[in-house]
Computed example of a mutant assay.
Amino acid sequence: MTYTGDVTTGGPTDVRELPHLTITKVSVGPMDNNAYLLSCRSTGDQLLIDAANEAPRLLELIGDGGLATVVTTHRHMDHWVALEEVVATTGARSLVHVDDAEGLPIASDTVSDGETVRVGDCALDVIHLVGHTPGSIALLYRDPAGDPHLFTGDSLFPGGVGNTHQDAAAFASLIDDVEQKVFGRLPDETWVYPGHGKDTTLGAERPALPDWRARGW
């Protein structure tokens, strides 16, 4: 089956098999949050991006392979409701950006812009995108055999950047970071996996950047 990234709460997962990494996308309720399980194909190590909700379902997805790490993309509660249960059950370490650590119930370590988080033999680059929250991050996997893959949390979606709640300064920070650190560094073929809803590519969104900046959200 061809991966599309179209998942619904209560529905099946969607799985993408890359040469070195398997990406499994699932939607959990009640706010249609996306969670992503990344599995290194050579070592079997696993990493979860956003233990958003429905801990039993996430634990079933993790299965017997264990879980090394949970990365929380930002401190908003809908992205970590299941975090404590998942960490307690699996023994995984919990990572979040240092500027959002205070809002989480559990964090065993923090990350900063430019650092690397590993899942087995695969590396994820941390990109700090300030605006949706002070410590929002994206995670970039540079597939050595193909195009980049970017997990953006709530900082970038099809059709715009994340919600900055009509805070002009926060929006200016977020659109600047997204333009410079994401669109300015990565090719159009980069696949974008957001915190809610459907996936997109940078090429599909790039032409609209001036419109996003002009409208202010």
Score class of each variant (00 low, 15 high):
Leu47Pro: 06
Glu85Met: 10
Val26Asn: 06
Tyr193Leu: 08
Leu202Gly: 09
Arg213Gly: 12
Asp125Val: 03
Asn34Leu: 14
Tyr3Asn: 05
Gln180Pro: 02
Arg16Met: 06
His76Ile: 04
Ala145Leu: 13
Glu205Tyr: 03
Thr13Met: 05
Val98Trp: 04
Gly29Thr: 00
Leu47Cys: 05
Ile106Thr: 12
Pro30Glu: 08
Val161Trp: 02
Ile137Val: 15
Gly44Met: 06
Asp6Glu: 15
Asp125Cys: 02
Gly120Trp: 02
Val7Pro: 06
Leu21Asn: 04
Asp154Ser: 00
Asp177His: 11
Glu115Cys: 10
Asn34Ser: 15
Leu186Met: 04
Thr8Gln: 07
Ser94Glu: 11
Asp125Leu: 10
Ile49Leu: 14
Glu179Asn: 11
Val126Lys: 02
Gly153Asn: 08
Glu189Arg: 11
Asp45Gln: 15
Pro144Ser: 13
Thr190Leu: 14
His196Glu: 14
Ala170Trp: 05
Glu84Cys: 12
Leu67Gly: 11
Ala92Phe: 07
Phe157Cys: 03
Arg185Cys: 03
Pro105Thr: 14
Asn53Met: 06
Leu104Lys: 14
Ile106Arg: 15
Asp50Phe: 00
Asp167Leu: 12
Val70His: 05
Glu102Phe: 09
Ser155Tyr: 06
Gly103Ile: 05
Lys198Thr: 13
Ser27His: 13
Asp125Gln: 12
Arg41Trp: 09
Leu202Arg: 02
Leu209Arg: 13
Gly162Ser: 12
Val130Gly: 00
Ala208Lys: 06
Asp32Ile: 00
Thr133Arg: 11
Tyr3Ala: 14
Pro210Asn: 00
Val70Phe: 06
Leu38Cys: 12
Ser136Cys: 12
Glu17Ser: 11
Thr116Val: 14
Thr164Phe: 02
Asp109Thr: 00
Gly11Arg: 12
Val111Tyr: 00
Tyr193Phe: 14
Ile62Ser: 13
Ser42Phe: 02
Asp211Arg: 07
Gly197Lys: 15
Ala88Leu: 10
Ile49Pro: 02
Glu84Thr: 14
Lys198Pro: 03
Asn34Arg: 14
Ala168Lys: 15
Gly131Val: 06
Thr90Leu: 05
Val28Arg: 09
Glu115Trp: 08
Ala172Cys: 06
Ala101Leu: 10
Thr133Ala: 04
His165Val: 05
Arg93Thr: 12
Ala88Thr: 12
Ala68Glu: 15
Pro144Phe: 09
Gly11Gln: 08
Cys40Asp: 15
His97Lys: 03
Pro12Val: 10
Val119Arg: 03
Thr89Ile: 03
Gly5Tyr: 09
Leu18Arg: 02
Thr116Ala: 02
Pro148Asn: 07
Gly159Phe: 03
Gly63Asp: 09
Gly10Arg: 07
Val111Ile: 12
Gly135Thr: 05
Ser27Leu: 08
Glu84His: 12
Phe157Gly: 04
Asp188Phe: 11
Val192Ser: 07
Ser108Leu: 12
Glu115Arg: 10
Gly5Pro: 07
Ile175Gln: 11
Gly114His: 10
Ser173Asp: 01
Pro12Asp: 08
Arg57Leu: 06
Asp177Leu: 00
Leu104Tyr: 13
Gly160Pro: 08
Pro148Asp: 07
Trp217Leu: 05
Gly114Tyr: 09
Val70Arg: 08
Glu60Val: 02
Gly91His: 06
Thr13Phe: 05
His97Ser: 10
His74Trp: 04
Glu60Ala: 14
Leu129Cys: 08
Val7Thr: 14
Thr4Gly: 13
Ala55His: 01
His79Pro: 00
Gly195Glu: 01
